[in-house]
Amino acid sequence: MKPSTINKIVNTILLAGVCEIGLVAVPPMVNLTRAAVNPNTKVIEISAKKFEFTPSEITLKKGERAILRLTSADRVHGFFSKELKFDTDIPFGKTTDVAVTPDTVGEFTIICDHYCGTGHGGMKMKVTVVE
């Protein structure tokens, strides 16, 4: 077996491990397909449009896995939080699922980091993580 093939397999296993164990917030690069979501997992739908997220606030439980199901009503938007390790685009016409298992209680801000027009600078939402 070629080393590159072995690397791919190892990466896949590691990636799957992160998804299932959910040590912290799952990096958004590991976006999930809808079929992959466990039916017992909490799913929160978040819609983006110029220049707001709906809902603008959500609450998550520390240590509890959730899926954020992201859609856009108009154009591509960003979905970024350094603290929660979210860094993905929300393309128009497509659903993007992001898994998260927060490990820290507190309030966090998610911003649109894909420039979308004159109100872009104020496009944000709040995530509260509780015990």
């Binding site: 970024f80 939080s81 350094k82 603290e83 860094d87 966090f108 801000t109 911003i111 980091d113 600078g121 944000k124």
Partner: peptide, 9 residues
């Protein structure tokens, strides 16, 4: 200040 969009990825 990344949460203010004051960064370069």
């Amino acid at each position: 200040k990344p949460e203010w969009d004051w960064s370069t990825r």
